[in-house]
Simulated scan of single mutants.
Amino acid sequence: MDEIGTIIGEKPDKAAQIEGLVFAAVLIDPEGRIAELNYAAEMLLSRSEKRLLGKTVASKIDILDDRVLAHLNEPESPLVARDVGLRVNDQESRVNLTISPLASHPGWRIMTLSDTGRDDGSNEREAEVASSGAPSILAHEIRNPLAAIRGAAQLASRKLEPKDRGLAKVITDEVDRIARLIDRMQQLGGSTREELASTNLHEAIRSALATVRAAGTEGVEITEEFDPSLPPVLANRDALEQVVMNLVSNACDALRASEQANPAVIVRTRFVSGFAFSAVHDGKAVKLPIEITVTDNGPGIDEALRDHVFEPFVTTKKSGQGLGLALVRKLVRDMHGRIAHERDTRLDLTHFRMHLALAGDGEQT
């Protein structure tokens, strides 16, 4: 067997296995210093191994949780922490974190970091299936009796006195409203995905913003801050436009409802060279370096709802149906991307950040 064949046939050693992980792994010595880290850790922390080796974890990894920081002083104690704040390049995100002491080497530990959008456990998948499938099942059960109600109302209106026909119209109008809601529920619960292709990001965003502006922004200033050098992304053009329209329209609605002084929405694009998220598609990790952020200066979503904004039927609008952001999440995931909500309490800004892959990465054939 030639040399290449030998390499392919060999079992990867432990170092190669750790290097190949899609989540960050950091080896910590007994003095709390960074002794080694894998490529995913360099990407997550936006720092090269050369700049991190020999430095203490507390000085180089900006963990925004005092309990985790205190735990770093307990080298023999394991830790599993979810939804921990992490700041990289002045951008805050949420990660899941573990610290595992090495029994064979007292004082040595392995710390892992993974963004909260990368949980691939079966429980989460089952919950997602349940949350997306339930609306579709419910829509199917409602549609037939709804059609019967509408037909009966139309038939009754022909026999009613003119002064009473308004009541029948109320019935048909409400049935039509529910039918539109059902259409959105079925779209949310659908399992089919639109074809993905190389897409000009800024053309899609500008098309979406033109639609929002045509509908009326009522004093809300919408600003574009685009990186013109960005390459095409892997997306479905219609789905991408729908996502941007939903996010910007929601921001405008929230600003108008709050009567915010100088209401403003910023749509920003950039290439994230270091702090890059990943998704798993067809069994391999796909980098998501293209970031689209929709930011508004409104009061933000109620704190009690912030962890549930992408769930069906969760809304802060008086007349809202609570399906808009759930549909946004589905469309983004169908494009192998991810989306997250953040509230910057220091600057009083609300961010919705979407990350997509470059065209060619995970592209359908």
Rank of each mutant, 00 (worst) to 15 (best):
D307F: 05
G5E: 15
L323D: 00
T56Y: 06
L37T: 02
G190H: 02
K163P: 03
S59Y: 00
N200Q: 11
A35L: 01
G5R: 13
S229T: 14
A40N: 04
I142P: 04
S93K: 04
L358M: 13
M1V: 10
S198W: 12
E19K: 02
D29Y: 05
G32E: 09
D120L: 15
R213H: 10
E128C: 06
Q242Y: 02
A127P: 00
P78G: 05
N73E: 14
E3N: 08
A254W: 05
G337L: 07
T293V: 14
L327C: 01
G133A: 07
Q242S: 11
A168M: 02
V265C: 07
E42Q: 15
D66H: 03
R343A: 01
R193I: 05
F313S: 10
L358Y: 08
R94S: 14
N89G: 06
I178H: 08
T345C: 04
G9T: 10
K284N: 12
E218F: 02
N144M: 13
A264F: 02
A70I: 01
V280W: 08
T269L: 04
G166W: 12
H281A: 15
E291C: 13
V280A: 01
A152N: 10
T223C: 09
E92Y: 04
V68G: 02
L230E: 08
R67A: 14
L97Q: 06
L52W: 03
V26M: 01
F271W: 10
M185E: 08
A103H: 09
H355S: 13
A147Y: 02
D164R: 06
D2H: 05
T192W: 03
G219S: 06
R306V: 05
A261W: 09
T345V: 10
D253I: 09
E225M: 06
L327D: 01
V265T: 04
S191L: 10
D183M: 00
I182K: 00
L113F: 15
P75L: 06
I171V: 15
A214R: 12
D62N: 14
N89T: 12
D238C: 02
R237P: 10
H341W: 15
L160F: 06
A359Q: 14
H308E: 15
E241W: 05
L230K: 00
Q154Y: 03
L45Y: 01
M43G: 06
A25T: 09
L52F: 03
I18W: 11
K317Y: 11
P263E: 08
P232K: 04
R343K: 05
V57D: 03
L146Y: 08
A285P: 12
E76K: 03
S136D: 13
G32V: 00
Q154G: 03
L240G: 07
A276E: 14
A148K: 03
I137F: 13
A35Q: 01
I18G: 05
M354R: 09
